[in-house]
Design a protein around this nucleic acid. Structure first.
Length: 406
DNA sequence: TGTCCACTGGAAGGGAGGGCTT
DNA sequence: AAGCCCTCCCTTCCAGTGGACA
């Protein structure tokens, strides 16, 4: 099909989308089905703010896609609206710590969100930024709510220094007040925190349980009605998407992704209705894209280690151990002319890959034969290989070691 | 029952990339 | 330009360890 034909085909059909934005990650709908309880709880906690008080800090737990972020954004939106009516000002800063794993970067993001002016990604001392934030916040009498999403990533990689500072920020403020909302999907996360931080941060806590298939269906139905033109989405497709997402830990975000991608596929194929087959295709595509993007963006050394794991898995029989990976990795480095990193570093890289969900690893004792990590590849081999095959160097290595999919 | 393997993972620090202030 | 401070990726050093085997 030529490019012109592709365009012609697309234009000859009317789009099935009415408002695609509704299916994007940062869209917050006017109603959040099946989260009424959580919304109410958070509203109670934050309501103090309307009387000029400082709401307690809140900790929200729950797996990904259980509506934590959405609930927070929703309640804050309402709070802001109500505040405006009665002449109270609220400001809030949303920081996703998954992408900002250092204390400094989190502070920079808070600055950005609160419009404290431009701050470079590196260079300034952390306490300077902190002072700047304090000064900026304290200019007016107001409540500032700082939302720290996926907090576990920050604490695991950089400790809880910033959290400690933030929990004590109110001591330094004269006019303004700060409340914190910490969001995490790691339920065991509390163990990593200093007890002072923990007690201050979890004055209140809200637990989010995963959605089941029925609830996911309701959510999808709501979004589909807004996103697609009437009658263009089959009910079976929605139920299938809900069932798939329910299997994957009740992740609503994944369910919505599925719906969006399925819509795009249907459109691409010139279909006028979104059907189950599109959802099935979308499932593969969403998974593939996710893994491929992660693997592609990995730093060089992490890619090399992953390549080694993949090779041990395809070639070898039985378990993948750190020692085995190290040997293979060193061979690859020799082949490509890179200087290999040390064992200690390999260990950290393995932990990184585990955090990303590409592998899982368990420290196992083999008795006489020592103690090692036993590694499992969690991501589909095909997706990883696809990325490597596209790279000239890596595909060369794959070939010279005679690795292929089968 | 103790030994000892093959690691694990904490601590400290370095150096290349950057940017700030003076 | 000097003197700090930041990040990221990495090194060196090292104490600690679960359990098969002698």
């Amino acid at each position: 099909m030529s490019v012109d034909e592709i365009f012609d085909k697309l234009l000859s059909h009317e789009s099935i989308f009415k408002n695609k934005k509704v299916l994007s990650h940062d869209y917050v709908p006017d109603e959040l089905p099946h989260r009424e309880g959580e919304i109410r709880k958070l509203a109670y906690i934050l309501a103090t703010a309307l009387r000029g008080g400082k709401p307690s800090n809140v900790f929200m737990y729950g797996k990904t896609g259980t509506g934590k972020t959405a609930v927070a954004r929703y309640v804050l939106k309402k709070l802001t609206e109500r505040g405006e009516k009665i002449g109270l000002e609220f400001a809030y800063a949303y920081v996703n710590c998954r992408y900002r794993k250092t204390n400094y970067r989190v502070l920079v993001k808070i600055c950005e969100e609160l419009n404290c002016g431009n701050i470079p990604e590196t260079g300034l001392p952390a306490d300077v930024i902190f002072d700047r934030i304090i000064k900026h916040i304290d200019k007016k009498e107001r409540l500032v709510i700082i939302i720290l999403d996926e907090l576990d990533w920050l604490v695991k990689s950089s400790g809880d220094d910033v959290l400690y500072q933030l929990t004590r920020i109110n001591n330094e403020l004269e006019n303004a007040q700060v409340s914190l909302i910490g969001i995490t999907n790691d339920l065991k996360f509390r163990e990593y925190l200093d007890s002072r931080v923990l007690s201050s941060l979890s004055e209140e806590s809200i637990v989010f349980s995963p959605y089941n298939a029925h609830q996911l269906y309701d959510i999808l139905k709501q979004r589909a009605d807004m996103a697609f033109k009437e009658g263009t989405v089959s009910d079976e497709a929605l139920r299938l998407a809900a069932a798939i997402a329910a299997q994957e830990h009740g992740d609503a975000r994944r369910a919505i992704d599925l719906l969006r991608v399925a819509g795009e596929i249907a459109e691409r194929e010139g279909d006028t209705k979104l059907l189950e087959k599109h959802i099935i295709k979308a499932k593969d595509e969403v998974e593939k894209d996710l893994i491929e993007a992660i693997v592609r963006d990995l730093p060089l050394q992490e890619q090399l280690i992953l390549l080694a794991i993949v090779m041990v898995k395809t070639k070898g029989n039985g378990r993948i151990t750190t020692g085995l990976v190290k040997k293979t990795y060193e061979n690859i480095c020799a082949e490509l002319g890179y200087r290999p990193v040390t064992l200690r570093r390999i260990n950290d890289i393995l932990s990184d890959l585990e955090m990303l969900g590409i592998i899982s690893a368990q420290v196992t004792s083999l008795g006489r034969y020592g103690r090692t990590k036993v590694i499992n590849l969690e991501a589909p081999l095909r997706s990883i290989l696809k990325v490597f095959e596209r790279d000239e160097n890596f595909s060369h290595v794959l070939e010279s070691f005679k690795i292929n999919e089968h």
